[in-house]
Design a protein around this nucleic acid. Structure first.
Lengths: 339, 339
DNA sequence: TTGAAAGCGGTACCAA
DNA sequence: TTGGTACCGCTTTCAA
């Protein structure tokens, strides 16, 4: 079949150990031997069997990533950032989707660990730490991505969600909105943080909160837009109806805008809409969407970097937290003409 | 560290072979032994070391996927379909992006093969078969996805591109367009097929082709929309300018629509636009986009199924081709009011 | 500088 | 039905 170390060694009349050392630029090799071996390696286009190497070294040169939805542009962009960095390091990405389902997530985590990934990146859908107990004294580095899990401390990389919520609400206030609603996400840290930021911002502006204006979208697998649509229909039925809405993420915001338009109202004149995530296509929507940017690709690269730095550390290191700043990108969905 | 077969065997006073057999439901095991072993396996939450298994069996239970761009919704949807099917089979997906770059793609192919993926799914950016010579007598099943490579025969799964082009052009004609342009993609089979279909459709309607109306967008890594924008600007500068455009894919179409709007013209009244791929967000764009649906998730599932069916076949099988039908989804970007 | 030997954690084959 | 043994392809250790 494929060429093995042994074949090269036999061809050249040296030992497998010698070839192996050349392969890994070991110093104890004469220049001449190195040359001969390298030449043969190139001729045969030799590729070491990484499974064998993984078995003996205990390292797979593989990073695992589990996200709720591959199609969600935010996670797709994060994944892209990760692969870019890993490629440079000879690492490879094992990817999997939990479909926003805690049981599937659990199953995938175990599967990834059985595969002996060197580190696991996880944008979790779990809402509490109980599901993670089984992970606590596992030696594989785990990095929570984007979403934290209350009560479970681990490495984390994401954005400052409270800040994101505040940016969005501040912006809506600045655009003259008076009745600012929020379509929040499920009970995960991102949703909780963003809502908290939203509330603080309103308070800071002396706007008294209206509980009816905070509504939770259906937990939305691949139909976040659908969920946003339905939630917005509810909000529009209120009296008085909101004139500004902060949405948990961009797909929700897209659905929400659609609902406003379908109701015969205008974005942003009747209802201004802010999303979160600033996905690539936000600018191309029916009404270009104002969104809180989460620098997803950079997040991905940093996540990969963090993962690699954790690989092969002997002593367990204290969990690290990396928070990226978010910023608001204003577009037509909130920019009202002065009237 | 982690539990091994050996540990379980020692605990129970049986041999590793016995445990191994239980693990794989080998028949030669007494019910009683099986029970005892299973019990202990559960207690310890034993996970076999897949690297070791891969080494001896030569199978990694891993499928490789290389796409030009992870963020492109079409490929993201395909990837999602693949992971869904693989999960059910205990397989895992190794993913990587070629960033629309042939050299990176080549590198990633070699890397995946070195990892001993059981099959490789590839949406290639190569425009000719030369780059694939090195693959020809490789035993790992290769499945070209979406894009074929001229002169290189292999397994293929995708849609009938000529049909897609024809559907789009027919539709534009039916909407009353007279001067139908095409923003085509790079020299890959999908672009070639779609252009061919477009031309045949025009011919069938007795419309004489205008070469100036067929324009190639910059090969667009993650900026297909940008590329569509620029191409459309060119088209709009022509005299007479086109009144209908078939775009190579949805992101290109999104950019093209933007260009029309920025030029102060209307979609579809002045220029009707059709995309290809029917990505999830097509309906939520500034002008909801008419698009040729490529059933991407189903494509992904079928690709995974095809890949698995090819794994472990002793004799090389003749290459299989799976063509899915496409259909057109008409939306506002082409539907003109009767006037 | 080089290489012999001993595994890494499983599976396959065949004998008991 | 059970298990001894060889071995998958590589790295590690240590002696030559």
């Amino acid at each position: 079949m494929a060429t093995r170390l042994k074949d090269i060694a036999a061809d050249l009349g040296v030992s497998v150990v010698t070839v192996s050392k050349v392969l890994r630029n070991h110093s104890d090799i004469s220049e001449e031997t190195r040359e001969r071996v390298m030449k043969r390696i190139r001729e045969l286009n030799y590729q070491p069997n990484l499974a064998a190497r993984a078995l003996v070294t205990g390292r797979s040169s593989t990073i695992g990533l589990i996200v709720p939805d591959l199609v969600h542009p935010f996670f797709a962009e994060v994944a892209k950032g990760i692969t870019r960095l890993l490629r440079e390091q000879g690492y490879v990405l094992m990817i999997s989707s939990s479909e926003e389902n805690a049981a599937i997530e659990r199953h995938e985590i175990e599967h990834m660990l059985a595969r002996r990934v060197d580190a696991l990146l996880l944008a979790s859908v779990q809402s509490d730490a109980a599901a993670f107990r089984f992970l606590e004294n596992h030696k594989t580095p785990l990095i929570l991505l984007d979403r934290r899990v209350p009560g479970f401390t681990s490495n984390f990389i994401g954005v400052d969600d409270e800040d994101a919520g505040r940016l969005a609400a501040d912006h809506l206030v600045a655009q003259g909105c008076q009745r600012i609603a929020c379509i929040r996400g499920p009970e995960v840290s991102t949703a909780i943080g963003r809502v908290a930021g939203y509330k603080k911002a309103l308070a800071a502006h002396g706007i008294k909160p209206n509980p009816a204006y905070v509504i939770t979208g259906r937990t939305a697998d691949d139909a976040a837009d659908r969920s946003g649509y339905d939630a917005m229909q509810h909000l529009l039925a209120l009296s008085p109806r909101p004139d500004g809405v902060f949405c948990f993420n961009d797909p929700v915001a897209m659905g929400a805008m659609q609902a406003v338009i379908d109701a015969g109202l205008r974005v942003p004149e009747d209802v201004a809409v802010v999303g979160c995530g600033n996905i690539h296509y936000a600018a191309l929507l029916r009404v270009p969407l104002t969104s809180v940017d989460q620098s997803s690709a950079i997040l991905g690269e940093n996540a990969a970097r963090l993962a690699l730095s954790l690989v092969g550390l002997k002593k367990p290191t204290p969990p690290r937290t990396v928070l990226l700043e978010s910023s608001l990108v204003a577009r037509a969905s909130t920019l009202r003409r002065k009237d």
